[in-house]
Structures are given as C-alpha cells and as structure tokens.
Design a protein around this nucleic acid. Structure first.
Length: 291
DNA sequence: CGTTCAACCTGGGCGC
DNA sequence: TGCGCCCAGGTTGAAC
C-alpha cells in the first residue's frame, strides 16, 4: 500500500523522535513468520543503543532513520507495513520495535506488518550509500523538474503507467497514484513513453506534483481494508478524493463516462476512456491493453 | 536487454 | 455457515 504520500506521512508522524536517544531495539516475539530484519536482532543492540536520532528521511517508499553514528535504520513497508508511535492495530502483527528515551516518558517506534512482506534493515553509512546510489533508485517524484522527469524515461518503450512504477527510473509513485495522476493529466495509461509529446510530459509532471502533494496534505489513502494508518494509528483521507482508482463502472467525475479497469503487468489500472482517449493516435496496438 | 510471471504473506469479499 | 477462489498499496529474481 504505502506509496510516496503514505510514507511521507509516516516520516512526518515520527518527527517527535528526532533528537532523542535509543535505549533498546529488537524484534518482538511473534507467532507469525518474523519480519525480515538485517542483521539479526542481536547485532542491533551494539550498533543502535545509545545512538541519537539525528534526522528522518524518506527514500522513495522507505522511511530512513539517520542515527548520530551515521548508520541508518530503514523501514520498507511494502504492502501492509506501518511505522507507528501509537499502539498497533493488533499486537500479533507487531514485529519490530525500537524504544526511544525521553526526559518525560519513553516513546516507542514500531514496525507493524499484517502480511509481513515488508522489512527492517540497519545499514552502515557506506552500505546505505551504495544501496541507494543513483542507478539503484531514481530521483524522487517530488524533486524532479519537468525536464528531469522526461529524462527519467528517455529511451523507454514501455507503456507510461507501468513505467511510472519502475522505482529505478523514478522513486515514489505506486499503482494507485499512477492511475490518479494520469487521469488528471488526460494521458491514456497504455501510451508508450517514447510516443508522449512534450506537452503531455509537462502535464504529467504538473499533475504528479499536484496529486502527490494533495495526498500528503490528506495524510495518504486508507483503502477499504483499512490497513493504512499514520504514525498515530489514524486513517488517511485522500481515498475520498480518488477520481478513478477502484472506481470501475462509476461515472467519471469530469464527463460521467464509466471508469474502466484493465490489467497492465499484473497490476490494475483505472482510467476514463473519454478523458484519457487516444486523441493523438499514440496507441500503436489498440487492442493489446484491453481486458 | 526487455518483459512476464510466480513468489513472498494475510485477510477481506464474493459466489456457490 | 463454510469453502474455495480472487483480489490487494510492492518488490525481487527466475524464466523466457
């Protein structure tokens, strides 16, 4: 679930931890398969306890805790992981925690993950540098200029929607926001990158920033299963603003044409066949993306 | 090299 | 009520 807006909300939610000192860290006993923690919990204590939290960064869809010794704790929520300071939705899915000291009362930083596809990893400064250097992950979706955005997809012949999900090209956009931003840009999700006009790239850039920033303001999207929560275990609000995602058959908010759903590289895509029509004839294979 | 697909997991929703 | 199947915000690595 968590895409850029949700992960950004997690980062902002745990900002009160900055400047405080870690007093304990470890994987909690869990009846489920334990979350992937690298290195093993035993190796954590000597490297983490006593360190101050200098800063909290976001790298694409990951939360990065920067410690005073320059090591990094990286939370990768994947589909259902949550970074919490509040009580978790259910205790049996709580798989990792860090206790952080404070003058008044202790705070806890927890990683909760229902499906357990996420991970927690501790990196040395050097390991972090090489793991997230350019080439391994693209520039952040909120930080690119229109020209840089186009450059991210230079030479790409893939359809735009699945291409937007490629974190090596551009970091942060996921399945939900890809559909939403292409709708706002009026661009058909199956048009191949190399056929997009400069005007369309500019529209994609503009609507990408707008959609992501607005979603951050609403603290992300909590879908029907209610899994996504901010750091204080509160649901987001952007799901009420979705214009095409999960709205198959419902009227387009602009033209009332029924929203359509189809599958691209195993992921659901939602779009309006009227607002995102192939007006410029850029779809070379008109039937390949159907059904 | 690009793309396709199964796999990693849990649980909600649906049809029968 | 229950069972089986399909679906889900992401990512990886193997197989074409």
């Amino acid at each position: 679930m968590p895409e850029l807006p949700e992960v950004e909300t997690m980062c902002r939610g745990i900002a009160p931890l900055v400047g405080r000192k870690i007093v304990a860290a470890g994987r909690l006993p869990c009846q489920r398969r334990p979350i992937a923690v690298t290195p093993g919990p035993a190796g954590w204590k000597s490297r983490v306890v006593g360190q101050k939290i200098d800063r909290i960064d976001r790298v694409g869809k990951r939360v990065v805790i920067v410690l005073s010794n320059q090591e990094r704790i990286v939370f990768e929520p994947r589909m259902t992981g949550l970074v919490l300071m509040a009580e978790p939705p259910s205790i049996e899915h709580l798989r990792f925690h860090v206790d952080v000291s404070t003058r008044k009362e202790p705070l806890q930083l927890r990683f909760w993950d229902r499906r357990g596809l996420g991970s927690v990893r501790l990196y040395s400064a050097q390991e972090f540098e090489s793991a997230f250097q350019s080439g391994k992950i693209g520039p952040d979706a909120l930080a690119v200029s229109p020209a840089q955005l186009k450059e991210c997809f230079a030479g790409c012949r893939q359809s735009i929607k699945p291409a937007l999900l490629d974190q090596k090209r551009l970091a942060g956009v996921g399945n939900l926001y890809a559909s939403e931003l292409l709708f706002s840009a009026g661009v058909h999700p199956a048009i191949r990158c190399h056929r997009l006009t400069d005007k369309q790239w500019k529209a994609i850039h503009k609507t990408m920033l707008k959609v992501l920033r607005t979603a951050i303001r609403y603290e992300g999207s909590t879908l029907g299963d209610g899994t996504y929560r901010n750091a204080l275990n509160k649901a987001g609000g952007y799901q009420n603003k979705h214009r095409v995602y999960n709205r198959e058959g419902l009227p387009c908010p602009v033209c009332t044409t029924p929203i359509q759903r189809f599958v691209q590289t195993q992921r659901a895509t939602f779009y309006c066949p009227n607002c995102q029509a192939d007006a410029l004839g850029q779809l070379e294979e008109p039937t390949s993306w159907e059904s």
